[in-house]
Design a protein around this nucleic acid. Structure first.
Lengths: 352, 352
DNA sequence: GTTAGCATTCGACCTTAGTGAGTGCTAAAA
DNA sequence: TTTTAGCACTCACTAAGGTCGAATGCTAAC
């Protein structure tokens, strides 16, 4: 969303903030009287009505029908999140809880991020999501070639997070165990510390220089490696059932959309990646409504933060919370931020 | 369900069959007039009314409210499935289609059964389910121990289906690569062809006899193996979104129950296993309503058939179709049967 | 055993009226 | 110029009443 935000007076900001707050908790259109009460202002509802009317004209609020209360638009939420929201610090207890859950004994990035998505769902009462570290953050630690049948070979790649990638390859002709063993040795020597991402490109290059002396081995290696499917970047999604508690997801069509995400979260992932990439500070991002790219369902909001490995400065992946647009962003933002920090730490500890 | 089926006259059977048929296609309570039309009988609706009233008294039919048409009860369905239904042969085209989809190049049991659940969902327009072969049908083919950190070891077990089970183990103290290598060799020798199911018991026994001569190795092996978590028997579930098209699953509470199954299908799996085990012929089974054990939602029906490996006579797992009770059992049963046969064949071909 | 006839039941659907929360607008007050 | 009181108006929501039609159960006759 390349939105222009029309500038708001202080009063307009106050009212917008109040409307968002109230709507977030009640899920019902907000009327002028309610805003006055909430703000404890010495103004009449009529005054606020005028302000709200202005806000509607500017695109921050909308009415679900003539003469019902107002509801924030996507732009309204966005303005709120960008300029009005005051991130709520976590209590010590909350921080301790997250820390405790994430410092449980976990041996692989897999486990850590599954646990993270679970934790986020639990803490937020929304859906939690957690992406595995990008492949270019992981590096090959060990390769094993395991003969299954004569012409079938399983290839096991252990990365620096302790994740094991397996795939199975069928060759044109039989390969002797001896050859496999020396190939395995060869690959371990030449591919150690190479980014998994580049199995298909860099690896090729780094193998070439051996071409003359060990031609047969290299040819075999290339044959095998081209068949290895590049690992898809996985995302864990937990607590989707929390979403069904929200009034906006009662209708069957909305339900379908949730199922849709569970089955194929890639549009959401793509949108989040882009958003995080475009961010200068590469901090937290919030997508609202259509920005989430979820097959024409504009009812979702998502808060995401990247996590980093200490060794490497750049973000390795992200975690986040998915819920209705109408989410308590203030509290959830800090949960996401803090958790992202912890995840980075835990992964760094794992990374060897 | 340990049901007694009160015996039915021929006419009663005909009527029950008609009611089930009509209800399956219309999803609406069936009245006496409709039954008469459908059967093309030379009887008046009043006569059929009497029959239906009798069927209701016996527990085969029920009314959703006084003076609406009748709907089959769970027992009604059961009677239909057990005694009245005539399994509809598949057309050649349908058989070819299933065969084609299942003979695609697939290298692991994993892939085959995932594809099976997908195929079943597609062919039935319901949800398809497919259980991985029971662990006791699989046998260890290869064990690899891969050092990650000094005290951390990944253990990779390749079974006879080409499935790779991985787990990660942390030891009390450092183990040298040499020791690991010889342990790996040792395990491969002593555990080849041993059922995975018994990693914790049989393996222990079979290792004991080496205790004296290779004590250190055996101790280490036991230490590692006890930490290996026994693989959980997985089930693939595909096409749950088809269920949302059915009128009976529109309500939010029903939707939740579907999500519940997706998240934890184990009660259903357990119910199916028991049912299949109790069957003398060990052929197809059908569970209806409460039999499916799905958290108090009695709207589901499931048709399942076991598949067998040619080498081993007993069932290795099952596949099936999950849908509303109101399912076209006649057609779906034959799909399940035929597919189960094909799956068995494909797995046998894989099994080495 | 079967059927015609009939009163009855009950959900589905429509209309109607009433209620209440909320708005926009105007004119007066501050 | 800003704020406010007052008022007409809008519109979803609800309850009540009425009609319709699909079905039933029952009884008495065939």
């Amino acid at each position: 969303m390349n939105t222009k935000f029309p500038p708001l007076s202080e009063r307009e900001q106050t009212v917008l903030k109040a409307v968002v707050h109230i709507y977030i908790t009640t899920a019902e259109p907000v009327g002028s009287r309610t805003v006055v009460k909430r703000l404890g202002l010495n103004l009449s509802p009529a005054t606020i009505r005028n302000v709200m009317s202005d806000l509607e004209e500017m695109g921050y609020l909308t009415q679900v029908h003539t003469s019902s209360g107002r509801v924030p638009t996507d732009i309204g939420y966005k303005y709120y999140v960008n300029y009005l929201m005051k991130v709520q610090e976590l209590t010590l207890a909350e921080r301790e809880h997250i820390k405790k859950e994430l410092t449980k004994k976990m041996d692989t990035a897999d486990q850590i991020l599954r646990q993270t998505s679970h934790l986020l769902a639990l803490a937020s009462h929304q859906a939690g999501l957690a992406e595995l570290p990008a492949e270019n953050a992981a590096v090959i630690r060990r390769i094993e070639l395991v003969p299954l049948l004569e012409r079938q070979v399983a290839i096991l790649i252990v990365d620096s997070f302790g994740c094991v990638h397996t795939s199975s390859v069928v060759l044109d002709n039989t390969v002797s165990p001896q050859l496999l063993e020396s190939l395995s040795k060869f690959l371990n020597e030449s591919l150690y510390n190479v980014s998994i991402d580049n199995i298909h490109s860099t690896v090729r290059d780094s193998l070439k220089k051996f071409f003359d002396e060990r031609r047969k081995l290299v040819e075999l290696a290339l044959k095998i490696l081209t068949q290895v499917e590049p690992p898809t970047n996985q995302m864990f999604l937990d607590g989707t059932n929390n979403l069904f508690d929200q009034p906006e997801f009662q209708e069957p069509t909305k339900v379908r959309s949730i199922i849709g995400i569970m089955e194929d979260p890639s549009p959401l992932v793509k949108a989040l990646r882009e958003s995080l990439a475009n961010l200068e500070s590469q901090q937290r991002t919030v997508l609202i409504g259509s920005e989430t790219m979820m097959n024409n369902i504009n009812e979702f909001g998502v808060i995401a933060s990247p996590y980093r490995l200490e060794e490497k400065g750049y973000p390795a992946g992200f975690i986040g919370i998915l819920g209705p647009k109408r989410m308590p962003y203030e509290r959830l933002s800090s949960i996401v931020d803090y958790t992202a920090g912890m995840v980075g730490k835990m992964l760094s500890r794992l990374w060897r």
